[in-house]
Design a protein around this nucleic acid. Structure first.
Length: 94
DNA sequence: TCGGTGATTGTTGTT
DNA sequence: AACAACAATCACCGA
């Protein structure tokens, strides 16, 4: 039984590695980059609280094909993060 | 071998 | 500066 987090309040400064080899962006992150301006374009009054919620709602409304595009981008980002860590362990091989 | 855990990613707007 | 919902993620490690 996977402990699914119901609250989205993760801890920000919870890292133990001094180098912190980051990870990769996620589909939503990339999607938000493109949609953030579109959502705001239709909701110039909506602040993060509004846009944020609306954004996520739209994300799910997005066609699977569309999401697939972002997922694909996330894949590239992943590979990028992989190199990031690669250098991290390389310099920090210890 | 396998699981699940935590850490991370980016936006905006506020205080 | 940091946080707050929104969602995905997924690499990492240990037992």
């Amino acid at each position: 039984m996977p402990k699914v987090k119901e609250s989205t309040g993760r801890k920000r400064g919870t890292k133990k590695d001094k180098d912190a080899p980051k990870r990769g962006l996620s589909a939503y992150l990339i999607f938000s980059n493109e949609w953030r301006d579109r959502v705001k374009a239709e909701n110039p009054d909506a602040t993060f609280g509004d846009v944020g919620r609306l954004l996520g709602a739209k994300w799910k409304e997005l066609p699977d094909t569309e999401k697939k595009e972002y997922q694909k981008k996330s894949d590239e980002d992943k590979e990028r993060a992989a190199k990031d860590k690669a250098a991290y362990e390389s310099k920090k091989i210890a």
